[in-house]
Write a protein that binds this DNA or RNA. Structure first.
Lengths: 198, 198
DNA sequence: AACTATACGGAACGTGGTTCCGTTTTCGCA
DNA sequence: TGCGAAAACGGAACCACGTTCCGTATAGTT
């Protein structure tokens, strides 16, 4: 209880020094810049462009994010969490079956806005291997709840894994045509309804 | 009607010379090499690797295929045509609704085998913009026939565009897990069956 | 104020796509 | 059969980008 006044419980007691303030400032700046650049130019945007926008050197970015995918992950973590947080409101506003569809469409729009993210997620590039895990780990349980409710109401068939569905929707949404993406997702959701208990 | 003796009806009468034999030989060699390399290393394989395998310089490849996507297109044209040619046999062997599903699964396996092709197709990269057009132009009518038959038989709903379906299936098949891809496609096809005329 | 661990910035390196150009080969014609 | 020009070849050269490295600047400690 001597040093570290504000932040709750840090990690290693070996070092006495506090993390430098400029480092934390820069980290936040980099993430904000990356969020903008990803939205404009896709997740494959040049690192130098992100560095320039943040007003730092590329070395600084690599210091904080040794892998490019770490930066991508950091940027999208907050948005994934937001999608997860929306589920209760959507569940309250629709019938259980429609809630599944509505939440997936919302997820669609989120994925579609990130040019190239879907492709990167499923490219087989091992550098991005951790990203699907995060998405699935966070959103899988959320969707499972929605599916369970809809199943219990007899509105959709049983036996569909939420992870499959998330993968499917993110892939279907990987294009630029938002209207088409939405059509495809609706078609998929109707597949869930086929053979429901009724 | 004076020159050009052998080849039936060529194009421009402006030039007198025939295309050089070595050029045509090399073109065939390059396409064959690219087919092998794409299958092994994906469509993003280095150009130099393809050139080395074909025993030519990279300049030779760029002479024949100014855009990388032109080479990809050349390589896959034959396989797309093969998928199109299979449709009649599949239609004959199944009920109309099952034929749609069976042909789409066959198409799934074809797309899944080309590592990275699906991602490239829908990456938004303008260099690849011509590829979807070729796929859709060739396979769209084929699938439309299958859909029309299934609709007429009352086995699937009406109003689904074959182009949407092809896009959807190629995206769903873009991963490495073939079993998962097949599950997703089946789910999508069941979406077609939902709300059929019965 | 001096010291040192930490972080910074950007030059440097490796890789891969694409272009350019001097050299080689094919083909039409005499 | 030999010649000349057009066509094609090959690979060096150039550029863009991801990633690493290291000399310099600075926050935090004493």
């Amino acid at each position: 209880m001597s040093a570290s006044p504000s932040t709750s419980a840090s990690s290693a007691p070996t070092s006495a020094r506090r993390p430098r303030a400029d480092a934390q400032r820069n980290l936040a700046t980099v993430v904000a810049a990356a969020k903008e650049v990803f939205a404009e130019s896709g997740v494959d945007a040049p690192m130098r462009e992100i560095a320039a926008r943040a007003g730092v050197g590329v070395g600084t970015i690599y210091r904080h994010f040794p892998q490019r995918s770490d930066l991508v992950k950091a940027v999208f973590t907050t948005e994934v969490d937001a999608a997860a947080a929306d589920a209760p409101a959507i569940a309250a506003a629709h019938s259980p079956g429609d809630a599944v569809a509505a939440w997936l469409v919302r997820y669609t729009r989120f994925v579609a806005a990130k040019r190239g993210l879907g492709a990167a997620l499923h490219s087989g590039d091992t550098a991005y291997a951790a990203l699907p895990d995060y998405f699935l780990g966070t959103l899988g349980p959320v969707l499972r709840d929605l599916l369970d409710s809809a199943e219990a109401a007899g509105e959709i068939r049983s036996g569909t894994e939420p992870e499959d569905l998330l993968v499917a929707v993110s892939r279907l949404s990987s294009g630029q045509d938002a209207a088409q993406s939405e059509r495809l997702v609706h078609l998929l959701v109707d597949g869930l309804r086929y053979g429901a208990a009724r």
